[in-house]
């Protein structure tokens, strides 16, 4: 198992060299003529108004929370899916087990939908 990961480490080393090289070289080669207007935030040529980090829609937080919940449920599916074929030969218990799990997931999903968490306005 550890042996299988050695190629990944080699690839990681090469990738780090490439990325660092690209960003380092452009830092070396590029001309630098900074002036205050050029370095100000871009707002379509107008003077920047107020702070950039303004308030944004609460929807983004809800999506983030729902993602954490649902993604963990997706992760629970994976071990089940790997052994599904093998255990299916021993009866359909594994299928019923999954249907119950999907049922529970659907209850939570419909609750979120009914509460309007999936609406974007």
């Amino acid at each position: 198992m550890v042996g299988e990961l050695v190629p990944i480490l080699v690839l990681l080393a090469v990738a780090v060299v490439i990325v660092a090289g690209i960003i380092g070289l452009t830092h070396l080669f590029g001309p630098k003529h900074p002036d205050p207007v050029k370095l100000s935030p871009y707002e379509s040529g107008m003077e920047p108004v107020g702070e950039a980090r303004t308030r944004f829609s609460i929807r983004f937080y809800i999506i983030a929370m729902l993602f954490v919940l649902f993604d963990i449920e997706v992760v629970f599916f994976y071990p089940w899916a790997v052994v599904f074929k093998k255990l299916l030969s021993m009866g359909s218990f594994i299928l019923i087990e999954m249907l119950v799990f999907v049922g529970l997931l659907l209850v939570g999903y419909l609750y979120a939908w009914k509460k309007g968490a999936l609406e974007w306005d």
Binding site: I63, A64, F67, F70, D71, V74, V75, F77, Y78, A81, V82, V83, F84, K85, K86
Partner: peptide
Amino acid sequence: VSYEISMGLAVIGIIMITGS
């Protein structure tokens, strides 16, 4: 993150068929 969920769920069909 929204589409990652459906992507992960879509691949589960393949894993069920392959078992690996």
